[in-house]
Design a protein around this nucleic acid. Sequence first.
RNA 1: GGGGAGAUACCAAAGUGGCCAACUGGGGCAGACUGUAAAUCUGCUGGCGCACGCCUUCGUAGGUUCGAAUCCUGCUCUCCCCA
Length: 376
Amino acid sequence: MQFRLLASDTQTNARLGEIVTDHGTIPTPIFMPVGTVGSVKGVSHRELEYDIDAKIILGNTYHLYLRPGLEVIKQAGGLHKFSSWDRPILTDSGGYQVFSLAENRKLTSEGAHFRSHIDGSKHFFSPENVMDIQRTIGADIIMAFDECPPGDASFEYAKKSLDLTERWLIRCIDRFNSTEPLYGHSQAMFPIVQGCVYPELRKRAAETVAALNCEGNAIGGLSVGEPAEVMYEMIEVVNAILPASKPRYLMGVGTPENILEAIARGVDMFDCVMPTRNGRNGMLFTSEGIINIRNKKWENDFSPIDPNGTTFADRRYSKAYLRHLFVSSEMLGPQLASIHNLGFYLWLVAEARLQIANGTFEEWKNKMTKRVATRL
RNA sequence: GGGGAGAUACCAAAGUGGCCAACUGGGGCAGACUGUAAAUCUGCUGGCGCACGCCUUCGUAGGUUCGAAUCCUGCUCUCCCCA
């Protein structure tokens, strides 16, 4: 993997770049649709490629390890072949599941003991086997195994958690460096900066990560309950330390507004379940604002879902029709909403790139952050 | 013509003297969702104030009772069975 920094905004810390992988080049800033189990829920690969033009998608180590399991993925020749996706893939390490499945796991310095959410069976994740699993899945970019503490964690807990994450990180790197990719394409491993909402911890974590000189770096443990302003402050603290020559990935973020604010602070990569999950639940993100398509006000609105939208769904179908699909519990509704939202997110970052290249990013961003957060 | 059953809020359907402004489901209306245990979850759904409360509801008109959706009488309507 290679990162090229093509331009830096003069008024903000926004950057324009590209990540070159063996499965293709990813322009940055970029949004990466989440396909946890090897599927972006409700959206076909054809739509991801031709309508949404996703440059890279995510998979999840924890979910794929449990099902279909490593044997099937290995036999298939890796996740790219198994899922018939020839563009880049990034896998999350399962660190987030340490957080979101907290009732079903026990942490030790060795790793995390889990119970499967599927059948209750017992499993163990360590920094080493998570690296091995991600070798087997075969994503272009893989993530270090970390602990993601909740947004309201105390300083004591946050510090202890960061200690653990940093010890795990060293082991991740050792294992990653002593193993080889399995399918003939190269893999990069990104470490993750933790530290909750405590600037001194974030600073220390960023310094640790920066010194490791990995191919890219991630910021985790944000948008887990803390106010957005605090998140922005943490991004500033961390990005002042992370090397400018490496891509910066803000994990799990976020709303269109969050993404624009983070781009302005020097973040290059994003992923979030919002466009798909909220889309399935009837929430549309558009360049004019946020729509709850189930609301009665759209009942007779026969205008396109999003006249400025980039996908076939946006101009072909009306709001009234999409509302009807949701109200009728037709599966096409959540599918179209997901396609629209992902199309919008990809449009948003593409437009941000354009504005950075034109030197007009800040003005555009200030206008857009207000608009995209408006409730229509 | 004879016999039987029933009328409860938008719909369906509980409730058969006080714990009933009325279970529950549907429908409707709104909200939540940020490295996906989510095509999921939550709230509201007689009126007014919208906390406490007050007012008007259980086909309809009367009656019994301290008190009625619940008991009695008349009326209206609906459904089922037999001719």
